[in-house]
Write a protein that binds this DNA or RNA. Structure first.
Length: 335
DNA sequence: ATCTCCCGCCAATCA
DNA sequence: TGATTGGCGGGAGAT
């Protein structure tokens, strides 16, 4: 069944000589020219009416999760090619999604073209494990420049990157905001490649490439309800992300509650004085800060709720800026 | 102008 | 050796 009922029928087939009114033999080169000319006689197909946003990895993952819900009934086999066809995308895009979901233990690669879908049944225990792993890798210290970056495994980069990106949220206090620039700086170990000297241009390209991957990962994480994009801040042009995943993972873990928040102007205030605010790990600051969290449509997926956290007055905004700047200075990040 | 991230090339790996 | 998998970056839409 095709979604687009406006597809017209296939044009009547005819040979090239009919179109060109020629009966003579044509060389391959001349044939190519003829084909080009013939093709130009036909109207160019209308540009795709599908909006770029409708093709985003987040939307695609949403649609994938409609087929294979996180809260489904038991394991089910997924055929990648048929799923790609059902979703109307190239198989390549399925790999983008399934690799990240596999890294979250939502699916297991069984054999060629086939995955076993577990949904979110293993997610809570896996997140606890990820958190421990993140602590073992000293990611929290690495964020502050107090520990070396973890070495980057060479294989399954997207999956490993996804796991480590999530670890950053798990090892930090609740509501910590992390931006992609910072995440890349912590997660991508450029020092391991010191044997071959990388030019600044190469480093820049490598960095940008990893940021692109984190955008992909973030979109899938948003779709499965693990993180939210905190948008609307005017001081940081780049988005920051907040963990909103299953609350019991953090609440049940005593170490999460005892983890000290970064010592910053914000944390120096007591909780009565300020509206619950966010610790910010972000890159360069550019504009006025004004955080708003879009209402999540994903919360129900994992049975979660997001506490109110948005600072509402100028004082909090100023403190947030100061907080961010101090964090940046503390990190010794030269941007 | 910069951010965001889709798209598809092509190398590595697999069967 | 062809098919599958997935790293990667160009470049175009969005802001």
């Amino acid at each position: 069944m095709y979604e687009d009922d406006n597809i017209t029928c296939t044009p009547k087939r005819c040979v090239l000589t009919e179109v060109t009114n020629s009966t003579n033999y044509v060389s391959p080169t001349a044939n190519l020219k003829l084909l080009t000319n013939v093709a130009l006689q036909y109207p160019t197909p209308p540009p795709s009416t599908v909006h770029r946003k409708e093709k985003s990895l987040q939307i695609l993952c949403d649609r994938f999760l409609n087929l294979y819900p996180l809260l489904g009934d038991g394991p089910v086999e997924i055929q990648l090619d048929s799923t790609a066809t059902r979703l109307g995308v190239e198989k390549r895009r399925m790999y983008d999604i399934i690799n990240i979901l596999e890294a979250m233990q939502c699916a297991v690669h069984k054999r060629k073209n086939t995955y076993l879908w577990h949904g979110g049944s293993r997610l809570n225990s896996f997140l606890k494990m990820l958190k421990k792993q993140g602590e073992h890798l000293k990611l929290s210290d690495a964020l502050r420049g107090k520990a070396p970056k973890p070495p980057t495994p060479k294989h399954k980069t997207l999956g490993v990157l996804a796991q480590r990106f999530l670890m950053l949220f798990l090892v930090e206090p609740p509501n910590t905001l992390i931006n992609l620039e910072m995440a890349v700086r912590v997660l991508i170990d450029t020092s391991s490649k010191t044997k071959t000297v990388i030019s600044p241009e190469q480093q820049d390209r490598q960095h940008k490439s990893k940021v692109r991957r984190l955008y992909d990962i973030a979109n899938v994480f948003i779709s499965i309800g693990l993180i939210e994009k905190v948008s609307g801040n005017l001081i940081l042009k780049k988005p920051v992300f907040k963990y909103v995943g299953p609350h019991n993972v953090k609440k049940c873990d005593k170490t999460a509650q005892s983890t000290p928040s970064p010592i910053t102007p914000l944390s120096a205030l007591d909780n009565q004085q300020r509206i619950p605010a966010c610790s910010v790990f972000a890159g360069r600051s550019k504009r006025k800060l004004e955080f708003t969290t879009p209402t999540s449509t994903k919360e129900l997926k994992l049975g979660i709720t997001t506490p109110p956290h948005t600072p509402s007055h100028k004082w909090d905004e100023i403190l947030l800026v100061a907080d961010m700047e101090l964090t940046r200075i503390n990190n010794g990040v030269v941007l």
